[in-house]
Design a protein around this nucleic acid. Structure first.
Length: 481
RNA sequence: GCCCCUGUAGCCAAGGCCGGCAAGGCAUCGGACUUUUAAUCCGCAGACCGUGGGUUCGAAUCCCACCGGGGGCACCA
């Protein structure tokens, strides 16, 4: 008799369901292969028909295999029939195909590997409640088609990016997550406290300033692929903790970063899905390089149907014209904004979400780009771009500002905004300025939102579908439903 | 923080406007069945209708508050 409590300490499957299907493709219905196999996985379905029992085993290999258990062959037949949907089972026996043509393992021996003491979700409807899907991902991964696939795509894409960067001579590094001064992005940080040092730390909002210190230190091609944290609202595109690829390349500028963005995205897509064509909702989108390159001025002008000036201080005629246009489009502006700043606001509010095909939106106002170098030929603008696809920002990059004096001025401007109530404005990082004063060569830097990229590759509408355990409000019992 | 939608058995879900014993299906449990594919057939059981208050002879249903989830806004790359 099989005692349900008698769980083995180890088990050795000899083959996966996927491999069985591949190996026995030519086995005819009603035929036996003469080959034995041992499989293990979770029982997803069970059909008892008197002296015959069928089970469907999912072994997470991307396929499923039927267990064929005749009473005359299967030991402890009654107990086998009593298995629950959701139980983990190991079974071995001859590989055969039933009369109806289903490839099966005839159960000549079997072990219960773990019992599911909770009823497994409905085999037909699955989990309809998205809340439960995210809170109990361990169930969702088995039950919801596509969930596991999304994370396989994620894994493959990330591996491809690492491989691509390694091939280009980039060094992967890890910089602090606990920052004494939050910096590198305009974002509100999480605050935490170190007891022994008795001081507050901020969870990093970007690794940027540390990575550029490394360029100063001679790591001329560096990248970090890791989690960053921003204390902001949640949305289908925003998670409080998310994964960012940041890389810096000495002697390069933002044009080089465009090529790199295209190449990395295409490599990730090809490795993960076999194609650079992705499907998002009803529409498809092609990540094949090169992507469209357009300036923010061009895009906004295109969208509004009139030429808008990018140059001009807050009191200029240009700014006044832009302000009127913003009002016409229902975009709120503030008194002190330059023409370029107003342009950027219109872009963010009205244009970005309309850009479907991959596009490099180039040349942002200097005021909103405190770490980017001034444009070599356009006044008031910085050499910065954002890559947008499916109406969502995918990457942000610039030719890095290397001059310590100008960087100090930019920090000062941020401090000024901070004092007038902008809690996301940056604070001056003296050590970073010191690093710059040792000399930062011309450098291109790129930040690529990994979750956003994976969303594209999976066709996911929400970032929660590409994060295994997305941030949710904790429940009283932390997840029970 | 604000607005809209939403919460009925382990799972899927009807009912809600117009108050009157809380449908049905899957799973569980018992029975039949040696080639099933959401197996089928028969039977049993399972619900403080998200929580608390109010209106009413009577509330899943109407009202208020709170809690969870989704979407939008705000915030934000």
């Amino acid at each position: 008799m099989t005692d349900r409590r008698d769980i083995p300490y180890r088990f050795e499957p000899t083959v996966t369901a996927a491999k069985l299907h591949a190996d026995h493709n030519d086995l005819a219905a009603g035929e036996s292969s003469g080959v034995g196999a041992t499989v293990a996985g979770r029982l997803m379905l069970r059909r008892v028909q008197g002296k015959l029992c069928f089970g469907t085993l999912d072994d997470a290999s991307g396929s499923r295999i039927q267990l064929f258990a005749p009473a005359a062959v299967t030991p402890d037949y009654e107990e086998f029939c009593a298995l629950s949907v959701g139980d983990w089972v190991g079974a071995s026996g001859e590989v055969m195909r039933t009369r109806r043509g289903e490839l099966s393992v005839q159960v000549e021996d079997w072990r219960l590997l773990a019992e599911s003491r909770r009823p497994f979700p409905d085999k037909w409807h699955g989990i309809a409640d998205t809340d439960t899907r995210y809170r109990q991902r361990y169930v969702d991964l088995w039950v919801t088609p596509g969930t596991r696939r999304a994370f396989e795509i994620r894994s493959a894409a990330v591996a491809a990016i690492r491989a691509e960067l390694a091939a280009r001579g980039f060094t992967e590094v890890e910089t602090p997550m606990l920052h004494p001064i939050p910096g590198g992005a305009a974002a509100r940080p999480f605050v935490t406290h170190h007891n022994a040092l008795d001081c507050d730390f901020y969870l990093r909002v970007a690794p940027e300033l540390y990575l550029k210190r490394l360029i100063v230190g001679g790591l001329t091609r560096v990248f970090e692929l890791g989690r960053i944290f921003r204390n902001e609202g949640l949305s289908p595109r925003h998670s409080p903790e998310f994964t960012m690829l940041e890389l810096y390349e000495a002697y390069a500028d933002y044009s080089d970063m465009m090529v790199l963005t295209e190449d990395l995205s295409a490599a990730a897509a090809t490795a993960a899905t076999g194609s650079t064509e992705v499907q998002v909702g009803e529409r498809s989108l092609d990540l094949t390089p090169p992507w469209r390159r357009a300036t923010m001025v061009e895009l906004v002008s295109e969208f509004t149907g009139r030429e808008l000036p990018a140059v001009g201080g807050a009191d200029s005629a240009a700014a006044a014209a832009s302000r009127r246009e913003a009002e016409r489009m229902g975009v709120a502006t503030e008194a002190g904004w330059s023409a370029a700043r107003i342009l950027a606001e219109i872009y963010e509010r009205r244009v970005e979400s309309q850009l479907w095909d991959p596009t490099f939106v180039c040349d942002f106002p200097v005021e909103v780009s405190p770490l980017a170098r001034r444009h070599r030929s356009s006044d008031g603008l910085a050499e910065r771009f954002e890559a947008v696809a499916a109406g969502r920002e995918l990457a942000n990059a610039f030719t890095e500002l290397a001059d310590p004096d100008e960087q100090r001025d930019r920090f000062a401007a941020q401090e000024h905004r901070r004092r007038s109530g902008d809690s996301d404005a940056m604070t001056t990082d003296e050590d970073y300025l010191r690093a710059l004063s040792y000399g930062l060569p011309p450098t291109g830097g790129l930040g690529l939102g990994i979750d956003r990229l994976i969303m594209l590759l999976c066709g996911a509408e929400t970032i929660r579908d590409v994060v295994l355990f997305p941030t949710l409000r904790p429940t009283a019992d932390s997840g029970e439903s």
